[in-house]
């Protein structure tokens, strides 16, 4: 059986690191739960050390920081699902800067491009707490106060996440072997606890709050399987919701799909593993 390659994609602060911390910590210590995923191949020493650091931070209810380990190696590990399927999990750029550069600078490091190209599943992170959508010129009249903030040099890196994510998703298939049949995408709307009270599904939230990205995703879905999952890896705001850290690790995450709520942090992988044909490498 060939392993399926899963690649994490997302702009800076999209929630990749916190997700990975929670996933790592819950995989490595199942507590009283049956482990859903087993890690059967570990990353290199620097990446492993970093994973442990962020896993510890997550466990202790500290905000998970960005990668400061000095490691440049991609985080790569292999998971085994309960059905025996192996997933090679690859995070080519935890900082997200390489992906922002795809959308804004239109360049990508060869090694990151290669990792994306070899993927059979993309897990695409969008942070609900920091997502921004473009404000139309039409919505502030000439000379209005809102325009004050715009009197700066244009910098594509500073564009709204809606535009950058839409561009990123539009460009990623170009890196794959066959852009006409791109890999499946699981969109993770991270920090879902911040919008959970709105009572909408993750896909509906995207439609309203990241309209450009959501439309590009709709188009993508014409040529590949797509899902949208709301995940709060922290399970809540550490500063406001002090009860979060008192929960056992497996009970902390909040995972919301169109039809169900759970604490299964591995939901994107579970979704993929159940797709027809996914067991033979996608």
């Amino acid at each position: 059986m060939t392993a399926t390659r899963v690649c994490f994609v997302g702009l800076p602060e999209a929630g990749k690191t916190t997700f990975l911390a929670a996933f790592w910590a819950t995989c490595r210590h199942a507590g009283n739960h049956e482990p859903t995923f087993e890690i059967v191949r570990f990353p290199g020493p620097a990446a492993r050390r970093y994973l442990q650091e962020i896993g510890d931070a997550w466990f202790e209810g500290r905000k998970v920081g960005r990668n400061t380990s000095g490691s440049w190696e991609p985080v790569e590990l292999t998971l085994r699902t309960p059905s025996g399927q192996e997933l090679d999990l690859v995070v080519p750029d935890l900082s997200g800067e390489a992906f922002r550069d795809v959308a804004a600078v239109r360049q990508i490091e060869q090694r990151v491009a290669d990792l994306v190209a070899a993927s059979t599943l993309l897990v695409f992170f969008v942070n609900a707490a920091t997502a921004s959508a473009h404000m139309s010129l039409a919505d502030f009249a000439p000379g209005a106060e809102q325009a004050q903030r715009l009197v700066v040099e244009f910098d594509a890196k500073e564009l709204e996440t809606d535009i950058l994510n839409a561009e990123l998703l539009q460009l990623l298939p170009m890196l794959t072997e066959c852009s006409e049949s791109p890999p499946p995408v699981a969109v993770v709307v991270s920090a879902w606890d911040t919008v959970d009270s709105l009572g909408v599904t993750p896909a509906q939230w995207l439609e309203t709050n990241q309209p450009m990205f959501s439309q590009v995703l709709d188009e993508y879905a014409r040529s590949a399987v797509v899902t949208v999952i709301g995940i709060s890896a922290q399970g809540g705001d550490y500063d406001r919701d002090h009860g979060v850290t008192a929960k056992p690790p497996h009970d902390r995450p909040l995972v919301v799909t169109a039809t169900a709520r759970s604490t299964d942090i591995g939901a994107p992988f579970t979704w993929f593993a159940r797709l027809p044909g996914s067991t033979d490498g996608g």
Partner: peptide
């Protein structure tokens, strides 16, 4: 179009997104 505000149409893609956004930025500024 990108914000789903143009009745009857849905955005698919643009090969000049940065061209549009740069012009919008300059116009606002």
């Amino acid at each position: 179009v990108t914000c789903r505000r143009l009745d009857g149409w849905r955005y698919v893609e643009s090969l000049s997104t940065l061209g549009f956004t740069w012009r919008g930025h300059e116009a606002a500024a």
